[in-house]
């Protein structure tokens, strides 16, 4: 599904990712952990193609295509989804309208018919309900006046509607209370199947209690310092990231 080789990413001239290799197969869920400033969010933005995140070396193959050749919206249409750590507010733009515009833009780019609005609303309402979100949020402006938890859950609603092939969740768990965390995890688990992959960027092990990763990677100073199964997450929880220094030494 995703094959990253020797990725180097610079932000504002400073190299943040320094030769990262990562392969995520179809249907797999990988967790990326690591201390602050290790390049976790940068990895997410670089894969999504955000301006200012300059790939200086390496290659990224996504679902058979060269991801780095694609514009941001083309990556989305190709099936890549990034749930932002800080979802952005768009004043005056109705949440439901935004979602439908995004979905239709992707469908149009793929040469598919636009969605029928009644059917669309029905689906969105189901996703909202599953995430215990108020339907009124559909009529509000995108993320405007949403609580932190509502914003994060709204990202999961978007993901559920857009049905990506690869979803990157950038600290979607941060700032969530335990109930909201469970809802988000359930939302992700509902979407898991053999054709859909996930990269879950997180600081904490607790989300992984619910998500059960196939692989756990520890990012340190722009490289994968350690990879393993979910027991690695437990070790991090116990020992912190300090062991990375000893591992390197």
């Amino acid at each position: 599904m995703l094959n990253i080789k020797n990725l180097h990413v610079a932000v504002g001239g400073e190299e943040i990712i320094k030769g990262l290799d990562l392969e995520v197969g179809s249907g797999e869920l990988h967790a990326v952990m690591g201390p602050n400033g290790s390049g976790k969010s940068t990895l997410g933005y670089a894969l999504a193609g955000r301006d200012g995140y300059e790939v200086t070396d390496g290659s990224v193959e996504f679902d058979g295509a060269n991801l780095l050749d694609l514009e941001v919206e083309e990556r989305a249409t190709a099936g890549l989804f990034l749930a932002l750590q800080y979802p952005v507010e768009i004043p005056g733009v109705n949440n439901a309208y935004f979602l439908r515009a995004a979905l239709n833009a992707q469908r149009k780019a793929k040469g598919e018919e636009e969605v029928d609005s009644m059917g669309f609303l029905k689906t969105v309402r189901e996703h909202l309900k599953a995430l215990n979100m108020d339907e009124a949020l559909l009529k509000r402006a995108v993320n405007e006046g949403f609580s932190g938890g509502e914003k994060k859950r709204n990202e999961i609603v978007q993901m559920a509607v857009l049905q990506p092939k690869l979803a990157i969740l950038d600290e979607t768990d941060s700032g969530l209370d335990i109930d909201a965390l469970k809802l988000v995890a359930e939302g992700v688990n509902r979407l898991r199947d053999e054709n859909r992959s996930f990269i879950v960027i997180t600081h904490y092990q607790r989300l992984l209690e619910y998500l059960v990763p196939d692989r756990v990677h520890v990012l340190s100073d722009g490289r994968i310092a350690e990879s393993g199964d979910r027991s690695l997450a437990h070790r991090l929880e116990r020992e912190g990231y300090a062991f990375l220094d000893t591992a390197e030494a």
């Binding site: 999504a48 193609g49 955000r50 301006d51 514009e71 941001v72 919206e73 990556r75 989305a76 249409t77 989804f81 990034l82 932002l84 979802p87 952005v88 768009i90 004043p91 005056g92 733009v93 935004f98 515009a101 995004a102 979905l103 833009a105 992707q106 780019a109 402006a141 995108v142 978007q158 857009l162």
Partner: peptide
Amino acid sequence: FYCQSRGLDEEEAVALIVDG
């Protein structure tokens, strides 16, 4: 970026933000 990462192209994104 947010709009584009959801599949809207730049012009559609600007139009959407302006419309809002």
